[in-house]
């Protein structure tokens, strides 16, 4: 790394990229892309010696991960509700 000379010692904050990837592939890339951008910022700010900024970007990435989880839950619930209501409807039709 070209700017490692001013990089703080120790590890950069957790950037939650694994969840950003999972979000992008499996669920909601609109949230995923913001999480990915925040994740790259963590490293960038850390390499510049901005520990506070890096931590803030990491916290933002974490928030986006939580939003992604909420969005995923809502998205998964939609087909479940539709399928269940169709099932109930079919049962009612059979009974009639």
């Amino acid at each position: 790394m070209e700017f490692s000379r001013i990089e703080p010692s120790g590890n950069p904050p957790e950037n939650y990229l694994i969840f950003a990837i999972l979000m992008t592939i499996f669920c909601c890339w609109p949230v995923g892309i913001f999480a990915i951008l925040k994740a790259t910022k963590v490293r960038e700010l850390w390499a510049m010696g901005d520990e506070v900024g890096a931590q803030k970007a990491a916290d933002d990435a974490k928030k986006l991960t939580i939003w992604g989880a909420v969005a995923a839950f809502v998205l998964i619930i939609i087909p479940v509700i539709i399928l269940f209501s169709m099932g109930i409807f079919a049962t009612l039709m059979d009974a009639a």
């Binding site: 990229l17 995923g32 994740a39 790259t40 490293r43």
Partner: peptide, 12 residues
């Protein structure tokens, strides 16, 4: 690897 810009944007 998850902190490499090349990997992140490449994968995305």
């Amino acid at each position: 690897l998850f902190y490499s810009k090349l990997f992140i944007f490449g994968y995305f």
